[in-house]
Simulated scan of single mutants.
Amino acid sequence: MSTWFITGCSTGLGRAFAEAVLARGHRAVVTARDASSVQDLVDAHPETALAAALDVTDDWQVAAAVAAAEERFGGVDVLVNNAGYGYRAAVEEGEDDAVQRLFDTQLFGSVRLIKAVLPGMRARRSGTIVNLSSIGARQSPAGSGYYAAVKAAIEALTLSLRREVAPLGITAMAVEPGGFRTDFAGRSLTQSAEPIADYADTAGKRRIEAGTGHGQQPGDPAKAAEVLIEAVESSDPPFMLLLGDDASDAFRTALDDLRADADAWEERSRSTGFDE
């Protein structure tokens, strides 16, 4: 039995992760901005679930939630940084305050939790940190530049973290889901308030009012949760866990495109050293 600390459990993948972890008999600290939205999970698993109100941008709430987990269960074995939301805008359209909130929630919110749980993990010489990214970090679609940027930053941070903590018996993992049938493209999706007409044929095609795919995403959150648990419990957990056919296909397409770009310019790239 291990203790999982999962952010953003009110809906979507976070809730699916929490349900699967608890169904397997593990302990789980289930968090949401409004703790009442996850109380049903505690009611169903009163001995193994703890609800905590958590705004990941609030230093005090982060410290309090992790302290509650340690007091109730003795420590956090697996941290899942899942809390987040989407933001769509052309780069020029992005509002400064909205972009700052996006990064504070998804990147720096994850960092706050990582820093809060690592002392205990280091003391026990064990633990797993899971950071939710997105296939958007690989695709970088027009209209999702800021969202792709924050997820790419999370992946880079995770890889450095993995290398830092591996000698301490701790692992770190990034997860790139594709489209899953959650609220992500519904109530969890935000966008810039003022579109610029010149971007109508690029970023404009991804605006909420142009979307038609909400509720029709191919991914099953319950199946994603089972694969995540399998990866965490593996003797050789991956750095990058792809979830979904669309994520797997898009990941490989993006790698092929990058490789072709590097190949086309390889000779010139290698010509920049001092002549000996």
Results as ranks from 00 to 15, higher is better:
residue 77 D to R: 01
residue 78 V to H: 02
residue 78 V to W: 02
residue 79 L to R: 09
residue 81 N to A: 11
residue 83 A to K: 02
residue 84 G to W: 04
residue 84 G to A: 01
residue 84 G to E: 05
residue 84 G to C: 01
residue 85 Y to N: 07
residue 86 G to M: 02
residue 86 G to C: 00
residue 86 G to F: 05
residue 87 Y to V: 01
residue 88 R to C: 14
residue 89 A to V: 04
residue 89 A to W: 03
residue 89 A to P: 04
residue 90 A to M: 01
residue 91 V to P: 10
residue 91 V to I: 15
residue 91 V to C: 09
residue 93 E to H: 11
residue 95 E to S: 06
residue 96 D to S: 15
residue 99 V to R: 06
residue 101 R to L: 14
residue 104 D to R: 14
residue 105 T to Y: 04
residue 105 T to H: 08
residue 106 Q to G: 02
residue 107 L to G: 03
residue 113 L to A: 12
residue 114 I to G: 04
residue 115 K to F: 07
residue 115 K to S: 11
residue 115 K to N: 14
residue 116 A to Q: 05
residue 116 A to Y: 10
residue 117 V to W: 09
residue 118 L to T: 08
residue 120 G to H: 03
residue 122 R to G: 02
residue 122 R to Q: 04
residue 124 R to C: 08
residue 124 R to P: 12
residue 129 I to P: 09
residue 130 V to Q: 00
residue 132 L to K: 03
residue 134 S to A: 04
residue 134 S to W: 03
residue 135 I to G: 07
residue 135 I to D: 05
residue 135 I to R: 03
residue 136 G to E: 11
residue 136 G to P: 10
residue 136 G to C: 05
residue 138 R to P: 10
residue 140 S to K: 11
residue 141 P to G: 12
residue 144 S to E: 14
residue 144 S to W: 10
residue 146 Y to F: 12
residue 147 Y to F: 09
residue 148 A to G: 02
residue 148 A to S: 10
residue 149 A to M: 08
residue 150 V to W: 02
residue 152 A to S: 09
residue 158 T to W: 01
residue 158 T to L: 08
residue 158 T to M: 06
residue 161 L to I: 03
residue 162 R to F: 00
residue 163 R to V: 06
residue 165 V to Y: 05
residue 166 A to M: 10
residue 167 P to A: 06
residue 167 P to M: 02
residue 168 L to E: 06
residue 170 I to Y: 02
residue 171 T to G: 07
residue 172 A to N: 00
residue 173 M to F: 08
residue 174 A to W: 02
residue 174 A to G: 00
residue 175 V to M: 00
residue 176 E to S: 09
residue 176 E to N: 14
residue 177 P to K: 01
residue 179 G to M: 14
residue 180 F to K: 07
residue 180 F to A: 00
residue 180 F to L: 10
residue 181 R to E: 04
residue 181 R to N: 12
residue 182 T to C: 01
residue 183 D to K: 11
residue 183 D to E: 15
residue 185 A to W: 09
residue 185 A to Q: 11
residue 188 S to T: 06
residue 189 L to D: 11
residue 190 T to C: 10
residue 191 Q to E: 15
residue 193 A to M: 10
residue 196 I to V: 14
residue 197 A to V: 02
residue 198 D to W: 09
residue 198 D to R: 15
residue 199 Y to V: 07
residue 201 D to N: 15
residue 201 D to A: 15
residue 203 A to D: 10
residue 209 E to K: 06
residue 210 A to E: 14
residue 210 A to P: 11
residue 213 G to R: 15
residue 214 H to T: 12
residue 215 G to I: 12
residue 216 Q to T: 13
